[in-house]
């Protein structure tokens, strides 16, 4: 028998690792990978909750989440290509034209 708390703990740990990845790296691709990890953590919460309550909804949301992630990745990677073409670099801090 799996403890619900443990499943959530795995999800939380995954999420925090993703967050650490986002904060740690300055390269846009790695930041995106961090975002993916965080989203996976969220998926795990949905699936675990679905199993805990014996309901279908959690899994539905996990699927929708996956679809939205796909959309997000499509745009984000297109943007990566765009930024690369503009500046020949993927270091996020180089794109600081919004500085006040």
């Amino acid at each position: 028998m799996i403890s619900f708390g443990h499943a959530l703990a795995f999800a939380g740990a995954l999420f925090v690792l993703g967050l650490t990845c986002v904060l740690l790296h300055r390269q846009i691709l790695m930041i995106l990978i961090g975002v993916e990890i965080m989203l996976n953590g969220a998926s795990l919460v949905f699936v675990a909750a679905s199993a805990y309550w014996q309901q279908v909804d959690g899994q539905v949301f996990a699927l929708l989440l996956m679809a939205i992630t796909a959309a997000e990745v499509a745009v984000a990677l297109a943007m990566v290509v765009y930024l690369w073409r503009r500046k020949r670099t993927l270091v996020a801090d180089e794109f600081n034209r919004m500085r006040g």
């Binding site: 967050l19 986002v22 904060l23 300055r26 930041i31 996020a92 500085r99 006040g100």
Partner: peptide, 21 residues
């Protein structure tokens, strides 16, 4: 003074975000 906070650097914003979290 507030202007100094807006560095335009993504990493700054992200870490501020994390601290807020």
């Amino acid at each position: 003074l507030l202007l100094k906070i807006t560095t335009g650097r993504l990493t700054t914003y992200l870490s501020a975000f994390a601290w807020g979290f």
